[in-house]
Design a protein around this nucleic acid. Structure first.
Lengths: 192, 192
DNA sequence: GCTATTTTGTGACAATTGTCAATTGAAGTC
DNA sequence: GACTTCAATTGACAATTGTCACAAAATAGC
């Protein structure tokens, strides 16, 4: 099995024990795609019809609010990215998913995922568990944004996602933690 | 069928078409509970082993951060509440779910939900769809908290959940939108 | 290498929000 | 109705953060 697919399988194994047969039925549906730095996995206005397991690379999710980019998420290797609302409800995305580095992803279309749901109930369970995981992440994020100071939010990012600080730009990080880039600059100057 | 159960069924119907047979198999597992104003559905430290469909009433979810209560959610009638992380992972909750009004809920235990998963795959789907719904709510909440001003956050609450403003106290609402209660008082004075 | 462009950092100041204290108001009890 | 208790409001001031302008640094293109 090629690396990309194997990694995807390992990722799922972290959430649930999946037998080879159930996983193998997905292989014909998976597609490997390369997305260069700066390019988009999903653009505002498109329907996001697939999810991507990131084998290698880094993405950011952002949307435009009064012409300003609001970063809502960074997704790095060994995680899954997609424009959630768009994917689930088949409506045009209001988000953009952009590669911040040259990336390699394994994609699975909604259409094929629904086939998997019918072929084996474990895919339902996988979907549910991954969604639950995302819920917990969002819940933590909401908590963090609601009452932490800019400094605390930055320190927590440093603690829990230090690789993002190495790999993403200051302006994107600032937007992600909900502060102006000048404020983030000053915080970085203090911490060193 | 008694009102509480019928309402729960109607609620599920909004998410998915459920045949009578599949729904009926849940009935023996459902339990109706009354929770008086001020009392708790879940307390910090307990494992939350069930979810509650709220037939009537209002709850808030909060946790303690340095002795301060942080409100993360209001749940009113015709919605589902639970301490998510605790319920899913069977770990002690760090949240409290408190009734703000005398309430009537329909509960379903994790144990029984798992039985339903085995009895009919539609329960898996229901779980997944409800989780997806929660994800979207959290995602909107995180966005709102990350860049809106106190005034904007209050106005949006007024727009999308006006009943909360009528029924919850200023201090709880303030905590929910992530501002001090004094600031919220001033905003209310301005808007009138 | 050099220039052009973008990103980041810094200073000055303004706006927003938080904190503390005191007052007003509302709800419940006797 | 008076009293107690808790919630909400208001004022004064401080702290945090945002905004704007510009300088410094990093990056990309040639």
């Amino acid at each position: 099995m090629i690396d990309e697919i194997q990694n995807f399988k390992n990722y799922l194994t972290q959430v649930i024990t999946i037998d080879n047969k159930s996983f193998d039925m997905s292989i014909e549906y998976l597609k490997i795609e390369r997305i260069c730095k700066g390019e988009y996995f999903v653009k505002d206005g498109q329907v996001c019809s697939k999810i991507a397991y990131i084998h290698e690379g880094l993405f950011r999710i952002y949307y435009l609010k009064d012409g300003i980019e609001i970063n809502t998420c960074f997704c790095n290797e060994d995680s899954i990215t997609s424009s959630f609302n768009s994917f689930i409800n088949h409506i045009p995305s209001n988000e953009n998913i952009q590669a911040l580095e040259n990336s390699v992803v394994v994609t699975l279309s909604f259409e094929n995922l629904e086939k998997l749901y019918l072929e084996s109930p474990i895919w339902q369970t996988i979907s549910r568990l991954l969604t639950e995981k995302e819920c917990l992440r969002l819940s933590d994020r909401a908590s963090s944004l609601s009452f932490e100071s800019a400094m605390e939010k930055y320190k927590n990012l440093l603690k829990y996602q230090p690789e993002i600080i190495q790999r993403a730009s200051v302006q994107h990080i600032a937007s992600y933690i909900g502060v102006s880039r000048e404020t983030l600059s000053r915080i970085r100057a203090k911490i060193g």
